[in-house]
Design a protein around this nucleic acid. Structure first.
Length: 320
DNA sequence: GCAACTCAATGACCTCAGAA
DNA sequence: TTCTGAGGTCATTGAGTTGC
């Protein structure tokens, strides 16, 4: 598999910046930085202090943002503790954003890792595995991802070479063709190595924009989770605030409920697209068909055959 | 309007029994 | 043993349909 040209996960996104919320329990930002730097070295006292300060946040995060139960949050806390306790992960924190911004990004990834480890979430598509490498907190995903990726490629070797090549052409943005597959294209489709190389490079370049859009969508998902979280907090504060005029409070609550509905609707729309695999930069069948000078229907049928082979495979089924 | 899927028609290939 | 043809299976195609 090739490294994806996009490195959106390395960039500090707007949504990550937006993750920062109100005030830190440790008011002095310099004090936090000093503590984090100590944690990076594995200092036991510093790590203990870190968990004293942020333990409650780590526990509350999945409850507030992912609507988990207290029991689940307790299990998640242990999972997160295991992964944060040696301080190594903090080395990924760069001092150009608020620490809490970074922490919430890591926690979000850890929640996903944890859910995945419980098989409550779909495993990441194989094409995402490479990208996860650059995201803070992806180590746990990689273990499962590498296993799935390796197995998937071994299974692909069991399908006819034509089907495998078509499959790879459709997912060209994320995978490379082997020398044998290029030779196959040269022989069977009368293509020159130059033509194949040009197709691969130009197609990837065109797909880069789409992939960036996809990454933005994923970023906005994180943003939405946090916006929902803030609105819920605001609503709670409103409920506990008895000083306000009842009329004002009702209007404010109504406004928050409306905003929440809108956020949920947008979030669900993105999740739905993600579930359908629409947030993946695929090469249109039409483009693959035109490149090989075969009908579009054939590409669809080949892809269907590979998909049915893979979904019926017992070993792959076990991983899902 | 585009992308992907479905389905019926057709073609290509494989197997096997029977004849020479 | 080799050739031939019938029958079955799988692959391919293009038109039409569906969903976004």
């Amino acid at each position: 598999m090739n490294s994806t040209p996009m490195s959106g996960n390395n960039k500090k996104s707007e949504s990550q910046t937006a993750l920062a919320v109100e005030s830190d329990p440790v008011s002095d930002e310099k004090e936090i930085l000093a503590l984090v730097n100590q944690c990076k070295t594995g200092d036991a006292d510093a790590l203990e202090r870190f968990f004293q300060i942020y333990g409650q946040d780590i526990y509350n995060f999945p409850i507030r943002v992912f609507n988990m139960t207290e029991d689940e949050a307790g299990d998640f806390f242990l999972f997160a503790f295991e992964r944060l306790r040696d301080g190594r992960r903090m080395k990924t924190f760069v001092d150009d954003s608020k620490f809490r911004t970074w922490l919430y990004t890591v926690l979000r990834n850890l929640v996903i890792d944890w859910l995945r480890s419980r098989r409550e979430l779909d495993l990441i598509p194989v094409e995402r595995i490479e990208k996860e490498e650059t995201r803070p907190g992806a180590e746990a995903v990689l273990t499962a991802g590498e296993e799935l990726g390796g197995l998937l490629f071994r299974k692909l070797d069991q399908v006819p070479v034509l089907h495998k090549v078509i499959f790879k052409l459709v997912y060209l943005y994320y995978v490379d063709l082997t020398a044998a597959e290029v030779t196959f294209l040269e022989k069977e489709y009368a293509l020159t190595p130059e033509e194949i190389m040009h197709f691969v490079l130009s197609t990837r370049s065109e797909l880069a924009d789409r992939e960036e859009e996809n990454l933005k969508k994923e970023d906005s998902l994180t943003h939405l989770y946090l916006s929902i979280h803030r609105l819920k907090e605001k609503r709670e504060r409103l409920l506990s605030d008895g000083n306000k005029e009842k009329k004002d409070a009702d209007a404010e609550r109504e406004r928050i409920e409306l905003a929440l509905d809108k956020k949920y609707a947008t979030r669900n729309k993105i999740l739905e697209r993600k579930k359908k695999g629409l947030l993946v930069a695929r090469v249109p069948y039409r483009v693959v068909a035109s490149f090989l000078k075969i009908p579009e229907g054939s590409v669809s049928v080949y892809m269907g055959k590979v998909a049915s082979f893979l979904t019926n495979d017992m070993e792959l089924k076990k991983l899902f």
